[in-house]
Structures are given as C-alpha cells and as structure tokens.
Write a protein that binds this DNA or RNA. Structure first.
Lengths: 190, 190
DNA sequence: AAAAAAACTTGAACTACTTCAAGAAATCAG
DNA sequence: CTGATTTCTTGAAGTAGTTCAAGTTTTTTT
C-alpha cells in the first residue's frame, strides 16, 4: 500500500492529483525481513524510510558489546539517521527490522528532487520533524525524571499492544535499564 | 541585530530582497534578562524563539523539587516547546534565560502567515528541525552509552567555553548527574 | 566595601540499579 | 514434532551514582 504514505502526507497538506502522480512515480514498497539491517554503523545513511507496517528500531552497540535500542519506529513513522543523512558522514547507528516490515525507502537524491518539484512537501516534512522533535523532548523528560519502574509502567500504559509485540530486552534498553531489572519489575520483585 | 536570523536563514535557502523585507517587517528583537522566564509549566507555548546572543535553557522541576535542565540554546538556535506549540497544549517545561539574552520571538500566527507568504521558509525550518532531531539522537546515544565522567569530559571537550559561561549545576543536570558528583569529577575524586 | 545571595566542594551513608551465572520458558526452523 | 535458538527469570554480590548536611568560595547587589 503505497497509499499509506500519501494518506499520511495529506493529513498535513493537500495534494493535487498531478502531485499525487508525481509522488507515486517516485516511491515503491520494499519488504524488510525480521532482523534484517537497513543501516549499519559506519555506513553513510542515504535514505529515509517511511514505515507502512511492521516495526523498526535504531540501536547502537555499547562499549560492553550490548545492544541498546535508541528508537522504535512503527506504522506511519519516518526513520533515518538524520545526522548521517544531512552531513554525509558515517552513521553511529544500526537500523534493523524488529518484525517483517514494509517500508517506502526514498533515496536522498530522489527526495531532494521531489522536494524541488513539489515544494509543498517541505511543509509536510517540516511539520513531521518538528513533531518528532517534540516527542524527543518528552522522551528526555521521562528519562530524566522517572525511575526505572515508573518509566516501565508509563510506557506500558501508553503502548500496551506494543509491549506485547516486541522482545522485552529491546524495550528495557529503550527505557534505559537492564533486561534483568525489567523482569524483576514485571514480577513485582522490586 | 535582526540580521542574525536573516543570515542564518540564508545559510540554507536564498532570499529575494522583497522576501527579506517581508521577513524584516515581521520580526523584532526582544531582550530577556538573566533568570527571566519566557515559558512556564502549564502555559501554552505559542512562540518560537531564535537566539541572537546569550543563552537560554529549557528545564523541568522534578518530583523532588529540583530543577533539571533538558536543553540549552545559544546563538543561532531556535528554542520552543514543540509539543505545546503544535498541539496547543500546556507545556511541561520552563524556558528561562541563563544570561541576558537577545531573541527574535515569533508568535505562531505571524510565523504561520510568513510561511504562507514565503513557502521557501518551510524548507529552512524543515532542515533546521531535522538537524536538531539528529543532534537529539546523538544526545540520547551519549546519555545511554557513556558514564557520568565520560559525559562530562566529552561535553567539556566539545564546548569548553560554554562550560565556563554557565553554572555547573545546570550542566550537571543537563548531563544527568548531580552537581555534587560533577564537583567530584572535576576534583578528580572519583 | 559590605552584606547577601548564589554557586561550588567535601565526606559519609545510602540506594537504585547492574552484572553475572545458571536455569526455565517460549519461539522458530526444518 | 524435535532440536536449536532466542528470550525471560531469579538471586546474590557489586557499584556508579545520589542524598544530606555543612562549610567555603564566588558573584551580585547596594
């Protein structure tokens, strides 16, 4: 369903039929298998990914060799390494499918030309990225002000289905505590 | 110097003289005294602030009544509560001048009409906010992977002048450790 | 220049979390 | 359906940081 992206865009701006045609001609759906990587540390990230369905995460490998999830992306989210994408520098991150996932992958040159042809899209990406930034501001707030247990319960209340869908150790690292500690929180042993 | 903003914009897009006139007619410089607030928790944030000179921080008051700095803004940065701004909801944050600061404050209705009049500005804000998001991704990475001492030294290396300029307890909370612990790091007692 | 306020330092006691190691349960591939 | 892999659990020991309280230094105000 390439229309998922078009629908998402049209939540924020309105498109002429001709513009829809142009966009459609530029995008195609790719399937990413569970555990497959679309970006690895050291590569330059040259693509923005719009998630149609499934789940993707951005993670790093820390100094002890453990994976830490920094971000999840689900339906209707964009995911990329913005710094690597904008500055053409090697990425610090891995981006990997958590489930079998369908994305619309847009290469930078294609997206750039699309933005020139349909400048209205600048507005769409401006709004989407400002909102993502807002979400990040809240994330930092939660990380700073809540205990591990509070972060777990808060996340669990906000996204109960998501917690079912995704391995616990990924959620634990996303919330910045160990998988073992999460297990104890869930068992009420803390 | 209202031109600081115009210069910043022109790093990312080019402007016609007529467009510069329009922008200039919409903006004015405000002075904010050290410790003065431009946003308090509970207020709806209806303004974006471009910092011409000085320093501003966004902070919260945590459950123990202590201030925690979530973000600093300096010359050529925009600062606002994006979530409150976009969704018209009460803010979770305080935004306060750390030093006497000059900002260009743009109210939402004015900015919206400016974006309609000069759609090119969408591109400017799109790029700026994607870059800010990228910086935030790196911030989360550092918070997750470095020890308190590493975070201090890293920050100190990246922004040595800044560390001189701003009270230590604000930097400590920005790096997510206590002011006392920072003092011990600096003294090498850790 | 003095007084007041703000910022920084220090050590001792504490605690929220990690790490390790091993086993149990669930899921996946053939 | 079976074995292999991945994920989750549990307890014991350890530690990176916090908290508290008091004193010192620096900055600001008058």
């Amino acid at each position: 369903m390439r229309t998922a992206l078009l629908q998402h865009i049209q939540k924020f701006i309105s498109l002429e039929p001709s513009e829809i045609d142009i966009i459609e001609s530029c995008i195609s759906l790719s399937k990413i298998k569970k555990k497959e990587h679309i970006l690895k540390e050291g590569q330059v990230c040259n693509t923005m990914y719009f998630i149609v369905n499934g789940c993707i995460r951005q993670y790093i490998i820390n100094s002890k060799g453990a994976e830490q999830t920094l971000q999840f992306g689900i339906e209707n989210w964009w995911i990329t390494d913005q710094l690597s994408y904008h500055n053409h520098i090697p990425s610090h991150f891995y981006i990997q499918a958590v489930e079998n996932t369908e994305v619309i992958a847009i290469e930078k040159p294609i997206l750039e030309s699309l933005l020139v042809e349909i400048p209205k899209l600048e507005r769409y990406f401006r709004i989407v990225s400002q909102k993502s930034f807002g979400a990040m501001q809240m994330r930092i707030k939660f990380l700073f002000t809540m205990s591990a247990e509070e972060r777990y319960h808060h996340f669990n209340n906000q996204f109960p289905e998501f917690v079912q869908r995704v391995p616990q150790y990924m959620i634990a690292s996303y919330l910045d505590f160990s998988a073992e500690f999460m297990s104890k929180i869930r068992a009420g042993k803390v």
